[in-house]
Design a protein around this nucleic acid. Structure first.
Lengths: 176, 176
DNA sequence: CACACTTGTGAGTAATCACTTACAAATATA
DNA sequence: TATATTTGTAAGTGATTACTCACAAGTGTG
């Protein structure tokens, strides 16, 4: 990975996350990265190739993020970590662009990407089962759905939205 | 409202909802509506004016939709109706485009539009308060957040996602 | 019918789009 | 050092973009 290639990726990440994929021109990316426009196509073939490079990296990071939770054996810990992970990720400002894009791209490309959350969902299902919940599968899905909703509010910066207190409330409800 | 003006609005609604605002060209809208491209600009000044016309209509429909809930006095009914309203809206296929756009546009334009849900949120807060919940405000917000998450799954058509069972689970949790 | 006004069209416009190409600079390998 | 390969640039390309404008068709009113 050359220096300029990485600069292209970083510029694209920020622009795609803030202004959207289709709304961001390759010339804008090149400008922000401080390289010639042609270099984007040398490294990534086309504009979609540039997006894919970022999304692929996203998949790796998601797996890494969930790895710790999936291995957890204590049911309550699985739920607790699921809720808390969302928060720790977004404490680092550099990471925010990255995760924001993961959500934003779902709507722009209209794909949910269920395979990414599947291992986590299964781990949660097992956890809810172990805790004696009546519909463990539905419960697991509902928790992930709620976190999706939290992300929407967080990334779109709804006024008066305090993510910490919502996460606390969630933990209280699940008694974790 | 002339016939052709309405055809433009309908075509734009469907295209914006499916492919996004920025990704939909005015020529595409004109084509689908069966009118000349110039007519769009005669009626709506520019492309954003066309979007605004649709979004404004959205605000009216949201108010209409919530009016019934806000007037409800029975706390449990407020919560129940909030959960069920989401479902009834999306039973009519013509309505789906409309509501999908309302969610999609949030991400594309990066505005949450909190004023739209404010009356509903206040009604929910009062309901949770009456029912003796410890943090009625946070509870109201959390329920709306969860519904946002449900919408994401629903409109992005996540595989294996059954909205009815999730709504049932939600009602069970709130005992409504 | 005459006149005003709205509704509608089709052929423009400059600007921007993603992408290509010819060539130069840098780097790796022998 | 000589040569092959990779990395990078600048100036293009045709296609598409949002939008304009001159003018025609339709409609309502006296």
């Amino acid at each position: 990975m050359t220096d300029k290639k990485e600069k292209i990726l970083n510029a694209a990440l920020e622009l795609f996350a803030d202004e959207g994929f289709k709304a961001t021109s390759t010339s804008k990316v090149a400008n922000k990265a401080g390289v010639s426009e042609g270099l984007i196509f040398r490294h990534f073939t086309n504009k979609e190739g540039l997006l894919n490079a970022i999304v692929d990296e996203g998949e790796k990071r998601v797996k890494l993020l969930y790895a710790d939770i999936v291995l957890e054996t204590e049911p309550k810990e699985v739920i607790k970590k699921t809720i808390e992970t969302f928060n720790t990720v977004n404490k680092e400002p550099d990471e925010v662009h990255f995760w924001k894009l993961q959500y934003k791209i779902k709507w722009e490309m209209e794909v949910y990407g269920e395979h990414k959350v599947e291992p986590l969902q299964k781990a949660l299902t097992k956890a809810f089962e172990a805790l004696g919940y009546n519909q463990p599968e539905a419960e697991a899905q509902l928790l992930l759905i709620t976190i999706d909703g939290l992300a929407t509010r967080f990334y779109l910066q709804q006024k008066g939205f305090k993510i910490e207190s919502q996460l606390e409330l969630l933990k209280k409800k699940y008694k974790v």
